[in-house]
């Protein structure tokens, strides 16, 4: 939903038990016109959505977040100043469930972290 519209994936790197997605925000997206007028800030739910989209990319299917255990926003993401971001994922995948631990960072700045459990969705 957000991928290739609100943001794009510019690349990814595999680390030890982690995978990092490099993403780029689209400052011209309509969502920024409403959040907030003249003061664009990425909505917290869109940051969650970007993490989910990267996790979906990684597991190769759609996900339904049924349990968002914790999610803390430490820094606001503004699309002009924080256009490029790194989404670091640690996934534990079983047949049905994907456990997600993720952070959004850039350099030394941590923007948010999240722990969630998602169900794999069957593609129609």
């Amino acid at each position: 939903m957000l991928k290739n519209d609100f943001f794009t994936i510019a690349g990814k790197e595999n680390g030890e038990g982690l995978v990092t997605y490099h993403v780029v925000l689209n400052p011209d997206h309509n969502i920024f016109k409403g959040h907030f007028p003249g003061n664009p800030i990425s909505p917290g739910v869109c940051n969650i959505g970007m993490i989910k989209a990267c996790a979906e990319e990684e597991v190769g299917c759609g996900l339904f977040i049924e349990n968002l255990k914790q999610c803390k926003f430490s820094h606001l993401i503004t699309p002009n100043e924080n256009k490029e971001l790194d989404i670091v994922l640690k996934l534990e995948t079983t047949e049905q469930v994907v456990k997600i631990a993720a952070t959004i960072v850039k350099g030394d700045t941590k923007f948010m972290d999240l722990k969630a459990e998602a169900l794999k969705e069957q593609k129609a």
């Binding site: 003061n39 339904f64 977040i65 049924e66 349990n67 968002l68 999610c71 803390k72 926003f73």
Partner: peptide, 16 residues
């Protein structure tokens, strides 16, 4: 006033 989500905990979504 402008407001933001600071933290979300124990968020269960039963269905969409």
């Amino acid at each position: 006033k402008l407001g933001y989500i600071g933290e979300i905990k124990k968020c269960q979504i039963v269905r969409l």
